[in-house]
Structure formats: C-alpha cells, structure tokens
Design a protein around this nucleic acid. Structure first.
Length: 455
RNA sequence: GUGGGUGUAGCUCAGUUGGUUAGAGCACUGGAUUGUGGUUCCAGGGGUCGUGGGUUCAACUCCCAUCAUCCACCCCA
C-alpha cells in the first residue's frame, strides 16, 4: 500500500451522509426527551486544563487521558536531569498542561463552579459532545465518541434519580430498543466493605463482584484473594453475592442481616427503598432491577448508580451514571450534590444498525432533482427551483450538462424521489415532465401541480 | 498493559505441496441506447501482493521482525 495513503487516527471515524442522517435521528430523539424534562443545553471546550481532568477517573482513567503537547518550546522548563531520568510522569507535567475531555461530567462540575453566579439551582443541563479516551479500540469502543449527558446539580432529592430513570426508559422506548436498567448504590457497596472489614479495598471489591455475572463466583473469589482481600472477608461476602428475590426482599435482607453494623450501608438501603417506592407506580417499559453486583468504575460516584444494557445484542453499557456528592468540592464548591446519566450515542447506533431499528424515512435526501439540459434550460429552471424550494420542498439542479444517464444514475444513487425533465419541448409547452424514481412512471404537469404533489 | 486473528485492485475477498503472465464480485469509464436510472449484454482502466530482512534455482505462498487493523481480556459509553 502506498505510504501516503490518507488515514485517520486509530479509533476515530468519518461519517458518511447516510450514517449522519441516522446519527442525527438518535441525537434528535435524545435531545427532545431531555428538553421535555426541563434540561437546557450547554457546551464546554474539547480541551480542559490537565489538572481539571487528572485524578477524577481512577488510575485506569488517568492512563487513558489524551494529553495535548504544549505549544512553543515545551522543553524549556525541563531540566537536563529530568530528561535524562526519563521519568515520564514528571515529564508529562512539563510537556502538557491541557488534555482532551474524558467525559462530560467532570467538565460540567468545573463549569458549575466557574459560573456559579450565572446559573440557578437546581441546575439541569444537557450536553451532547464528543469525548476522547486513549483506549484500545474494539467492538463498541472508540477513541472518539459522543456522549449525551444530563445532570442535575444542587439537589439531594431522589426525585432526580427517579426522573433520570424515566428519561432512560423514554429514550430507549422512542428508539424502539429493548433494554434492562440496573440500579445499585455505592453506599450499600461501601457498607458491605465496612462490615466485612475491608473498607480500604472497596474499589477492588466492587470491581471484582461487578464481574459476577460474567465469570461466576469462583473467579470473583479468586480475584478478591489476589487483590489482597482477607479470607474471612471473602467468606463473609458469600451470602451477599447469593442474595436473590425482588428488590424489596434483597433490601430487607441487607437491612436486617447484613448491614445493621454499618451506618452508611443502612443509609444506602433506605435510599434504595425510597427510590423503588417512587418507581413502583410508574409505568416503565423496562422495569429497573436492583443489581448488587453493579459497580461502575468512575471514582466520583457516592450514591445511586445506574446502568442500561441492550437485551438484543451483546454490547457494553449503552447508558450509565449515578450520584456524586463531592465532585464540585474538588473545584472549590462544597456540599453540592449532583446526579447524572450519560448515553453512548455510538453504541446505541451500533445496536440499532445491527437490529434494523432505524425508520425508513431517515433515509430521505433530495425530493426533486432537475436534469441539466444546458444553459438555456438552466436559466429557465432556476426560477422554478426557487419557487419549489420556498414552498419547502428539498430540490436541486444537477450542476453539469452531462449525459442524462449519468444524471439519472446520480439521482438513483442518492435516493432522490423525483426527477424533473425540462427541455426544449417542456419550455415551449409550459410544463414539467416529472418522473417518479420508485415506480419509473412519469407525467407532464404544471409547476403548481408539481408543488401540490410533492409537498 | 496481556493474548489471538487478518493485511492481495477504490471496496469485499479467492489464490493449489513454493513454479514462470496474480484472479472474481462490486465500484469506476466507454459502448449496445447522442431526452431517461435501478435489470441485462459487450469492452476497458486500475495491483512495488502492508513494510523490511531471511530461506530457496524460484516467495503472494515458508521463517523472523516491524507497522496497521480487527477481536478478546482489563476497564468503560
């Protein structure tokens, strides 16, 4: 292959018109639901100060940050000693003070603190923008992908969680997708870690039990042991892993038998009981389930956590989020709690595409194309085109006088609905020959009739 | 970061135990049809076989390295 063959960076993609029409269908659907629940749009820059991003996503997250090389002589502030030592972590600080955003939640927390005086609480915003992660690309995983976020900041009410679950349900219902909504609570996970005496290892424990469904209880126990969780703690964890029944039954079990000794754990249980009591009377398409193995990797979650997965296709989560009590605290604003969820537009696209969920009319392009017969006809057609477009019909004139066959082929490829042929005869008789590209039939009609027909 | 698969025409891929001139379909261009596409038929253009090295009389084919890409793990949207 030629060396100068053009390419784009790994994990990024170009989108063709046919794909964009479908992507926009997803964005429009999501945006409409967001607006109907009272969320307002904001945007933030693609890049943030690196200090805004680091330390928010766990160790793995830091590794996956895209860093932007400083402009100018970026080695000026680096001592010879540092270069010789090749300590990449030290050098990073000198070479890069900006990074591409990793998600939309952390920049939003920064945004809130920075614009405190310009917003009213509780602040409900939505944000649809790309984010970047230096992950190894694979199925359903890209290095540049779009998140559609909603967050409410400045309200402790569980009604926000309820609302966001309704939004998840509504969006996937509108997209005609089947999903399962799983809910858990970091406070319960924290309580469990506390009662088995492994508070320090909470992250490792949650990550390990997150895999319960996938790898089974033995592998989970193995991983726990490897991560340094004591034998006694693992043993005490077993009854929790095997809890079954309805959400209410699980919560009662936790409350009475497992978590009495943990204040934080009891708080989590009571939150979940309250949440499910709100959800009970709502008529949701996808009934939310309590999944005690749901963990979620991001460091900043402190309360309810939520995830939605497709039941029609094996794919990572399509939507995830939860409550974070201290995120704005990092930027200097304490005691303000937030809760939000994020929809992964690209994964949603992949699932919809695979399962043929896009409606036919997302493929509509130009309704009417005029064939180009030459300069005289061009001048005759332009005013007609103008009238047609002003009436609201999507129309174009083929720009070059080339073979009719070629022009028809263009119309065909582009999925144009109708072709207008206006040559010498039509001009003389004051009519337009209109050809239906689906049926192949054609008729001679006036401009007014044409507009009436195509509107 | 760990493990596996695949790199041949613009795209999707064949290519025999290594053998002399590397193929198909789609796409593209021209023609059958100089005012009619999606069907059909005919003709044509287009390839340093990812890159570098090695084995061999001979490498698209075997070996090594490297790069790219896809899949799985990890983690995540």
């Amino acid at each position: 292959m030629a060396k100068d063959k053009p390419s784009i960076p790994k994990g990024t993609r170009d989108f063709l018109p046919g794909e964009m029409v479908k992507r926009n269908y997803i964005f429009d659907t999501i945006r409409n639901v967001f607006l109907r629940f009272g969320f307002m749009p904001i945007e933030t820059p693609a890049m943030e100060q690196i200090s805004t991003l680091t330390g928010k996503y766990g160790e793995e997250g830091d590794r996956l940050l895209f860093r932007i090389l400083n402009s100018g002589n970026y080695l000026a502030g680096v001592s010879d000693d540092e270069i010789i030592k090749r300590d990449i972590n030290k050098l990073k600080a000198s070479l890069s003070d900006k990074g591409l955003r990793y998600d939309l939640t952390v920049p939003f927390a920064r945004f809130v603190v920075q614009h405190l005086n310009e917003i009213t609480f509780p602040f409900k915003r939505y944000q649809i923008q790309p984010v970047w992660r230096a992950d190894k690309p694979q199925k359903g995983r890209y290095r540049e992908f779009f998140q559609c976020d909603i967050d409410v900041i400045g309200s402790n009410s569980l009604l926000n969680e309820v609302e966001q679950i309704q939004i998840i349900d509504e969006i996937f219902k509108n997209l005609n997708m089947k999903i399962v909504i799983r809910i858990n609570n970091r406070k319960i996970l924290g309580g469990i870690a506390e009662v088995i005496g492994e508070t320090e290892k909470i992250t490792q424990i949650t990550i390990a039990i997150d895999k319960l469904d996938k790898v089974g209880v033995h592998k989970v126990n193995e991983e726990l042991a490897v991560k340094g969780v004591s034998e006694r703690a693992i043993r005490e964890l077993q009854p929790i892993l095997s809890l079954s029944g309805t959400a209410e039954e699980k919560l009662n079990e936790l409350e009475k038998k497992i978590l009495p000794g943990s204040k934080i754990g009891r708080k989590g249980v009571s939150e979940m009981k309250s949440l499910f009591s709100y959800l009970e009377p709502l008529e949701l398409e996808a009934d939310p389930i309590l999944d005690l193995t749901l963990a979620r990797g991001l460091d900043y979650y402190t309360g309810v956590i939520i995830e939605a997965n497709s039941t029609e296709m094996k794919m990572g989560s399509l939507c995830g989020g939860g409550r974070y009590d201290d995120l704005t605290g990092i930027f200097g604003l304490n005691d303000v709690s937030g809760v939000g969820v994020s929809f992964g537009a690209d994964r949603i696209y992949d699932v919809m595409e695979k399962n043929g969920k896009f409606p036919e009319d997302t493929m509509l392009t130009t309704t009417l194309m005029f064939v180009n017969f030459g300069e005289k006809e061009e001048k005759f057609c332009l005013p007609l085109l103008d009238v047609i477009r002003k009436s609201g019909i999507r129309a174009e004139l083929f720009p070059d006088k080339v073979k009719i066959k070629k022009q028809m082929n263009y119309a065909n490829q582009k999925n144009v609905g109708y072709v207008a042929l206006v040559g010498e005869d039509e001009i003389k008789n004051g009519v337009i020959t209109l050809k239906n590209m689906k049926t192949g039939g054609q008729e001679q009609i006036t401009l007014d009739e044409l507009i009436e027909k195509l509107l």
